[in-house]
Each structure stands twice: as C-alpha cells, then as structure tokens.
Write a protein that binds this DNA or RNA. Structure first.
Lengths: 192, 192
DNA sequence: GACTTAATGGAATTTATATTCCATTAAATT
DNA sequence: AATTTAATGGAATATAAATTCCATTAAGTC
C-alpha cells in the first residue's frame, strides 16, 4: 500500500560509489548524488537518515564483499586467496578505489551507526579466525613472525601493487599476478 | 621594517600536518589550524592565499622529501633505497600518514597552483630518470617487465606493509625490513 | 471512487567553514 | 618622537552543502 518507489536504496548506494570513484570524495554532495539518478534531494533523506549513514553503508558493504571472498578462499588455499584479491579488484574497480584510497574516518564526519559497528566486528572476527587457521595449517603454530609473513604476502604486497594502479585510474593488469605469486613463494613457501 | 612576525610560514604547515595526521582531514579547518598555534584566523590568510594553497604546499613538500631521499639512494644501491622508504616513514610518521592515506585531489578542492605543478613535474622526471638508470644497471635494459619488477620490489611492496601500520596509527617496526628484503631478493636479484 | 499510506519533488532553512576586512599593534627608519 | 610598514587579532560576511519540511502524487484497500 502506498505509492510505488521510483528509486531503490541500492541505486543511491551505487551512485555514491561511482561518484566517489570517478570524481573523488569532494564531488559526493547530496545534490550531486540525487542528480546522478535524477532523484530529488529529499528522496535521499527518505531512504537514509543522513549522508554519513549512507556512506557508512557504502563502506561496510564494500569491506564485506572483499573480505568475505578472501575468507572463503583462504580456507582452501593461501595462494588462491591472495590472487583472488586481484580478481576482486578487477571485478569491482569502483569499490576497490574507495576501499584502497579512503578510510571510513574520512568518508564520514560522525561516528559509525551501531549496526555497522556490529557488522564490522563480526567480519573482523571471521577474518581473524580464517587467517589464524591458515597460519596453523601452513606453519604448525601461530607466532607473531608467521602472522606478519602471511599478512604481508597475502594482503600487503598485493594491495601495494593494486593501489598504485588504482591511483593512476587503472585496473591492475593480470600480469601483476606474477609478482604476487613470486612474493608468496618467497615469503610463505620458502619459510615453511 | 614593519612589525616582527610571531608566526612563521612553516609553523602553519607543520600544524596542518599534525592535525591531519592525528585527527584526519575533516579536522583540518582553518579555525582549528590557527588555534593549534594560538594564531588568529586572519594570520593564516596573511601567509597563504587560501586553505587549498596551504595544503598544496604541505603535499608537495612531503612528496619532495620522500622522493628525493629515494632518488639519492637508488643511484647507489637498490636495496638501500628500498629500505630507506621504511626509515623515512619512521622518521616522518605524520608526513607518511598524509602521503599514504590521502591523495592531492582529496586534500584540495581546486586545481594545483602553477608553482606546485612545476615542482611536481621536475620531481617526477628526476624519479623516472633515476629508476630507469637503476633498471639499466641491474638488468641491462629497460623493459616493461623489468620496470614492473623494480617498482613492485622497491616501492609497492614496502608501501603495502607500511600503509597497514599507518592505518592502525602505528609506525612500521624495524622487523618489517626482513620481509621487504626477502621480497627484493626474490623479485629483483633472482630475476637478474 | 473515497481513503489511507508511502513515496516523490523541491523550495526554504540551517549549519559549518572559508574568506574578507579593517582596526590595532609593534618594529624599523628618519 | 613622528612616520611608515608589516604583522596580528578577530568580528563580520560569504559560501557551499546538508538537512528539514511540507505540498503533491500515486498505489493499493475498503
């Protein structure tokens, strides 16, 4: 009952992602957001309590998408999980730009909505558990040194190269996988 | 002649760096900047034509500091240059946070002042030349593949691990150097 | 087809900050 | 010590963008 909706929640979220990715955070005004999908400004506030709330949702959705894929893969295989970061970025270039070029703190002015805090906590726990299980499987036990190795090879190094391409408004080429593999081999497999 | 200055240009620049590093870009209002050194708002505009101009100078100073150190070292030795990134970050934690957590585009609203564009052009040329010379020395000739290897091992991978620590409000520990060395050995020396 | 509800549409308002402006103060010069 | 110049000090103004509010519109329900 009541009027049919012209605009979906998701359309605003996607429009925000595109604007930030293409023109930077400064370009994401509520007016620009509404205009991109030809919606009136008021409709933004009909669906989201504030610009901050919308951005919190954009952020947590992206992080969940990225990390859940990683978590799923690392249960099977470390190298696969590592390479999957690269593939996720290639499939989600706009989201990747936001994830790697901004921080939550800079997207929003205020504090996280409580729902988002919960989702973030659950996600971090899942990630932590999955990584710890992998370290145990790979090295026998979890030490600070092993943990550093795994995070570096599976996350830091791939993100490092990916981020450079994103900064240049490009998507990392498939050839980047070669360097990621070599690093993984040197840092994880050789150290076993 | 005329009244003696209470506030130096540099004090405003340093205050801005600290505020952004400690509390994020949103915290850097002109009022907050002035307050941090107990200056009146007007004095900011006595020294800088605009907030944007001040930020442009903050940014270019940081990039010059980082890259000039790297350029100097890579003329001598690739691994030394690579490890020097880590040391620069440890010596300049605030500057590092700005360099690695923001982009010029997001610090400023408008376009770069012309002076800054020139400084950036010169710097990029120097960096490019130094890296090309290193690649030639190391591999005999400059190919796309060699270039990717060198940038990855000397820059992307170190930045990747450094950035993770900076995101957690920490400075990377000296132990990070081990992983950076191993990556360099695997990606540059083994491939020679 | 009147009624209720949910949504759009957009003008008006509020808020947060950057910027301007000018009076005041102090150093150097004569 | 009067004068000139460069700087401070901060209130007033301008600006840009978020948010509010309410009138209008359309879809189901009785």
């Amino acid at each position: 009952m009541g009027r049919k909706a012209y605009f979906k929640n998701e359309e605003f979220l996607n429009a925000a992602i595109e604007i930030i990715s293409e023109n930077g955070l400064n370009a994401l005004t509520v007016a620009a957001l509404a205009k991109r999908i030809n919606a009136p400004v008021g409709s933004v506030y009909h669906r989201f309590p504030s610009r901050d709330a919308l951005l919190a949702e954009v952020w947590i959705n992206i992080i969940e998408s990225f990390q859940n894929e990683f978590i799923g893969k690392i249960r099977e295989d470390g190298l696969e999980a590592t390479l999957s970061c690269l593939e996720w970025v290639r499939r989600h270039p706009h989201e990747a730009r936001i994830m790697l070029l901004y921080r939550m703190q800079d997207l929003m002015w205020g504090a996280w909505p409580e729902e988002m805090r919960q989702r973030a906590r659950r996600l971090n726990k899942d990630l932590h558990d999955a990584v710890a299980a992998f370290i145990k499987k790979q090295f026998g036990r979890v030490t600070k040194e092993n943990t550093d190795r795994v995070i570096f090879a599976t996350y830091d190094a791939p993100i490092g190269i990916i981020r450079r391409y994103l900064l240049e408004n490009k998507v990392p080429p498939p050839s980047a996988a070669r360097l990621i593999r070599e690093t993984y081999a040197a840092v994880i497999e050789k150290a076993k």
